[in-house]
């Protein structure tokens, strides 16, 4: 399934019918003993059918928390969703009563996690856990559910599925465990699959197998895929569109080709120059100076300005565009590209 590449770059433009999922101005905070941590500060995006949207960010950028908010699996307290809407199939998931949320999300949106060993229950066989989806949502008998589980294990290419259906999670290798989790996630043919760092814990050869599997499944079912990762290489190989997050905000968004070849936000630019490449020895790396911000004390103005080599402060800044004072909104810089930087045109050189 192919999509218009500008689909997410013009989120509420409605170019490709109505989106599968529309997240608008989502805000999440953690109320802790030592103050309020603003993990997600108003993010908006849409996901179309068959689209792969990568949410790229470093640890603490809010990428996982935003996904957990959509799935309704945040621990409350300390986490509180303080604003925004998540519209799926015409209904705002955040305002539905819990039982209805479960009925909508269960078959409609599923999620896989980084650490399959801790996401699976160690005392039930994998067949039982995969079959649980059918027993809970379709009322199948144990026997039928197990038969379906074997089919699914075949589909995610677990060898000798019929023999392994009664094995326990610890009897599988890391890559196979990740497949078990994928089998559970796709059991009910979800419209959306959220993959939170699905291959981070895996070796690179296994990572390639799992990403291939996800792509094939997506091609077969046309589901929308939200891929949360910090790995620029994975984003480049798998995703159509990318949203770069920093300090709980989306700071740049566009097609992967556009964003990776010509970043419009100095943070994205910094990420690109920080990574060594496998295809060339390359010269000295150009890192981003400093550390990612503490989310309990996000800098004023642009959250990236203390680390930004292009920042303009005080007299250097254009009126109303002081990086230390004025917060840059996510705005359309060139067609198909949004960035949250006062000086994106300079970064792009347009």
């Amino acid at each position: 399934m192919s999509i218009s590449s500008g689909a997410t770059a013009a989120p509420r433009g409605g170019a490709v019918g109505s989106p599968l999922l529309a997240v608008d101005d989502l805000q999440v905070e953690f109320r802790t003993g030592s103050g309020v941590v603003n993990a997600v500060n108003g993010i908006s995006y849409t996901l179309a059918q068959g689209e792969t949207l990568a949410i790229l960010g470093e640890s603490g950028s809010g990428k996982s928390v935003s996904a957990q908010a959509i799935m309704g699996i945040l621990d409350t307290p300390p986490a509180h969703i303080t604003g925004g809407t998540v519209v799926f199939e015409g209904r705002d998931l955040l305002t539905l009563p819990p039982e209805e949320q479960r009925q909508v999300r269960g078959p409609g949106i599923s999620m896989i996690f980084q650490d399959a060993l801790s996401a699976l229950n160690p005392v039930y066989s994998v067949g039982f856990q995969i079959g649980e989806m059918f027993r809970a949502h379709q009322g199948l008998s144990k026997k039928d559910a197990k038969r379906k589980a074997v089919e699914l294990m075949d589909r995610v290419r677990i060898p000798a599925a019929a023999q392994r259906v009664n094995d326990y999670p610890h009897q599988f290798s890391g890559g196979m465990r990740q497949r078990v989790m994928i089998a559970m996630a796709i059991a009910l043919d979800p419209k959306i699959l959220i993959a939170d760092e699905p291959t981070t814990a895996l070796d690179v050869t296994v990572q390639a197998q799992v990403m291939d599997l996800l792509k094939d499944l997506q091609r077969d079912t046309g589901m929308g895929l939200i891929l949360i990762t910090h790995d620029l290489g994975v984003v480049n190989e798998v995703a159509d569109n990318v949203a770069v997050m920093y300090a709980g905000r989306i700071v740049e968004r566009g097609t992967v080709d556009d964003v990776f070849s010509r970043p419009a936000m100095p943070y994205t630019e910094g990420l690109m120059t920080s990574i060594p490449r496998v295809e060339a020895k390359g010269g000295r790396l150009v890192p981003i100076s400093g550390q990612p911000p503490n989310l309990a004390r996000i800098p004023s103005g642009c959250p990236f300005h203390p680390r930004c080599p292009r920042r303009r402060i005080g007299a250097e800044a254009a009126p109303g565009r002081d990086c230390a004072v004025d917060h840059p909104p996510l705005r359309l810089v060139v067609p198909g590209r949004e960035a949250a930087c006062h000086y994106s045109e300079e970064v792009l050189g347009v």
Partner: peptide, 20 residues
């Protein structure tokens, strides 16, 4: 091993020899 490493350049995507 090398063929499994994701490349970072959009213009190189798909030019890699894929060995799974």
């Amino acid at each position: 091993l090398l063929s499994s490493v994701p490349l970072h350049e959009p213009h190189l995507r798909g030019q890699k020899d894929r060995i799974l």
